[in-house]
Amino acid sequence: MAVAEPPFTTAAYPEAAELLTALPRLRGYARVLRRNREDADDLVQDTLERAWSRAAQWRGVGDMRTWLFSIMHNLHVDALRRGRLDTVDLNEHTPEVPVAATQGQILVVRDLDAALAVLPAEQREVLLLTALDGLAYAEIAQTLAIPIGTVMSRLSRGRARLRGLM
């Protein structure tokens, strides 16, 4: 008796392996955007669902990671515009960031999380895509659909404001 091959295989979709390697970074970025593990997982799920529904476009995608971040960013912005996202008061909840057990390191991470929350969303997104995901300015510009000069400006202003807050 022959076993039926599952509909998802890397043989049928060679780009799927690239999609799967992007998952940890997608999860990390989603958790920073949503500040809630369940909402972040939902955002990753929605991103993958949208990407999978457009699998025919994969061959035209130059960089799968940038394309996925663009999808995630657009889904997040759409949810913000619809008012579907709940905000989290950082004074009531501890961040869901894995940290070392020392008190000093925990306090630094909490301070950084609080300072990032104060930044305008545009500056925070550019900072996170640069620092956490290591995207180049051109990739960030493509992901957020903004000019590269705007990326550099937001990054500069965001870093300066973050330094002032820290």
Rank of each mutant, 00 (worst) to 15 (best):
R84I: 12
T150M: 06
L135N: 02
L165N: 00
A11N: 07
Q105F: 13
T87M: 08
D113W: 13
G28K: 10
L128E: 13
R59E: 14
A101N: 10
A138G: 02
F69P: 02
P6S: 05
L112N: 00
A115H: 01
A101P: 05
I146R: 01
Q142F: 03
S70M: 09
D86G: 07
V108S: 08
R65P: 01
I140C: 03
T21A: 04
F69E: 03
P6H: 06
L127E: 10
D133P: 00
E125F: 14
Q142W: 00
M1L: 13
L23Q: 02
D46V: 05
L127V: 12
A16D: 07
V88Q: 11
L33Q: 11
P6K: 05
T87W: 06
R110P: 09
V109W: 06
V118D: 04
D78T: 14
D63H: 04
Q105M: 09
T87N: 08
T102L: 08
L80W: 08
R34W: 01
M64A: 04
V108M: 14
V3D: 11
D111S: 03
R27Y: 11
L48V: 15
A114T: 07
V126C: 07
R65Y: 06
T87G: 07
P147D: 06
E15V: 04
V88I: 15
A56K: 01
E122V: 14
D41R: 01
A121G: 07
W52K: 03
R27I: 13
L75Q: 12
F69C: 07
R31K: 14
T66F: 00
L155C: 00
D41G: 04
R157N: 10
T47W: 14
